[in-house]
Design a protein around this nucleic acid. Sequence first.
DNA 1: GATGAATGAGCGTTCATTCAT
DNA 2: CATGAATGAACGCTCATTCAT
Lengths: 191, 191, 191, 191
Amino acid sequence: MAKLEKRDEIVRAALELIAENGFHGAPMAMIAEKAGVGAGTIYRYFENKDVLINELYRDLEQRIYTVLMEGYSPEKPVRERFIHIGTAILRYCIANPLDFRYLEQFHNSPYGVVHRRDRILGETGEKDIYLELFKEGLARHVVKELPMVVLFALAFGPLITVARDHILGFVVLDEALIGEIITACWDGVKR
Amino acid sequence: MAKLEKRDEIVRAALELIAENGFHGAPMAMIAEKAGVGAGTIYRYFENKDVLINELYRDLEQRIYTVLMEGYSPEKPVRERFIHIGTAILRYCIANPLDFRYLEQFHNSPYGVVHRRDRILGETGEKDIYLELFKEGLARHVVKELPMVVLFALAFGPLITVARDHILGFVVLDEALIGEIITACWDGVKR
Amino acid sequence: MAKLEKRDEIVRAALELIAENGFHGAPMAMIAEKAGVGAGTIYRYFENKDVLINELYRDLEQRIYTVLMEGYSPEKPVRERFIHIGTAILRYCIANPLDFRYLEQFHNSPYGVVHRRDRILGETGEKDIYLELFKEGLARHVVKELPMVVLFALAFGPLITVARDHILGFVVLDEALIGEIITACWDGVKR
Amino acid sequence: MAKLEKRDEIVRAALELIAENGFHGAPMAMIAEKAGVGAGTIYRYFENKDVLINELYRDLEQRIYTVLMEGYSPEKPVRERFIHIGTAILRYCIANPLDFRYLEQFHNSPYGVVHRRDRILGETGEKDIYLELFKEGLARHVVKELPMVVLFALAFGPLITVARDHILGFVVLDEALIGEIITACWDGVKR
DNA sequence: GATGAATGAGCGTTCATTCAT
DNA sequence: CATGAATGAACGCTCATTCAT
């Protein structure tokens, strides 16, 4: 097994276990077993469990960013781009429930708070697409004049909630419904 | 210290520690110390940690329900009632950040999932106001024809996100902004 | 409730709980509840749990001694007296399984060892009947010339084992079988 | 320390502490300390305390069975075989007092009851030698016509009692006395 | 005298991390 | 390098005992 393969196996195992059982439901020994490596080996790739959790998050964020950007054209109107991203996010969560569950575990934990606090200055990641989008929307007077953080909440908040409800089986999101949801979010954001 | 005082002290300590550090950042011994009681004493009031967590949640839910219902008039139009509740929720979260953090910890955990699943059949609690409200809104054709769960998400999702952002200091919610946010949520929900 | 009644209630409750669940299966609080007294009250009658356990044992021993002596005539032949006592012991164990279970718990525990060690000098209690009986048996040359302790083992050992087996339901002891067992024990002891 | 050595050290420490102080006088931490290992290490070899206790019992039973069978010839007369086994048991108990004390602790505890109940159907282990022996004895009309359980009691009960008395120092069993005791047991059992 | 709420030491067990092989 | 056995601090919880009422 090559070095990168091994790291990958560890990350995959950690993702799955943490997504399904939360942070305490994923002891290092269990991650190691699932990854097919020795328990000590994990520590060659990640200084400790915290680092593993944070790097896994960063990996995931990067992966999602790439997906969201597929077919994204900055020339299109704000509304269309908004719908593109929202739809992509929802589709991704539905197609990758483990990723979504992991992100939730992460955001709702001390890790998430620290992460957010770090973001406050140098914003990076998927939020930035929204940032750019909303900046343009504000300039063109097509979105409401609200703080960026609020616009983000109006656009993103409902998506998280429905994605969770879908994964837990409380609602079934098909393409039609996804479309309606994103439109409704746009209604909340648009001027 | 009277009997009820002691129970209260335990609940307060648990709330604070769990809100700030999550469930595993709040060992029973630490809760006991913060509450100023012996470790064993907690078990006179709560059968075990799970029970403590669930009762604390129920207490909180009850308290919030009472606040939300203050000044609520079922005769008023759907829109007005929607705004009343949304505003009350946001104000509560801002005024009681520990309560809000606790609710988040709870909802994003196995406890929360069980709780939600229980709700699906015999719905009870504060959500029911929304339920009733949206049912009427659907009957009067003033809200979008979407599954109840989705309407909840559109109405509630952004509130959670902005409340968290406020508590973390990413935005300052004043009365004016609260009003604008709730109105925007209504835009997302209304037909 | 009179003072002696209360003591009695405590002893009865302790006997039952310890007999059925062993020493750890009988917390002081549970004994108190079953006895219908406050937990602290037990400590007015018994200095601590060890004392309670030992006094309970002494009570039991006394009670059994009395029963064994019923209809016992020191003038009768050694063999007849042997059979009288053996039969009485077995009947008692069958009729009072809780007492028997308690005695077993006691003997097989640090308490029992201490108790036996205390006995080594000033022997007292039910064993003494045997002691006297065997002394006479030796003098009259009707029992084997073996150390007293060994005679005791030959006479008493099988009774304990069958009593336990009866209580656990592995054999049913009726009067006929009891007679055969005691006779067999006599065969072991007699010259 | 090799792997098997460590398991052995744990078993030895547990045997000694439990034999001397009973099950609750032998906390895992104390066993670990006596064995010269960390507390967590025990759990690499035994799933939990119950498993440790049961495996230790099984080890012991196996060891004793081997000793009892040394020089045992199934062709010899019933009486001779009875004496062989009885003598071997008594010698073993005297030579290995800790083993004997452990067995007593085990038999007089919930573990022992479960074990006995298991035996009642599919009998296995050292008792079976007696079983076979007594079956033959009954067929040849050399032992009394009593239930198997009672024959066991007559043969085995006194041995337990004298072994305990020897260990506690109430009697000194030399080879001559052992011979007399076993003969006396045979007197109890034989027709 | 009687009570039972309060205590905290001690239990069995888990798991992130280390380090000899 | 990779390993996984070993570690021990920390956890949730119990219960004999005390003491204010």
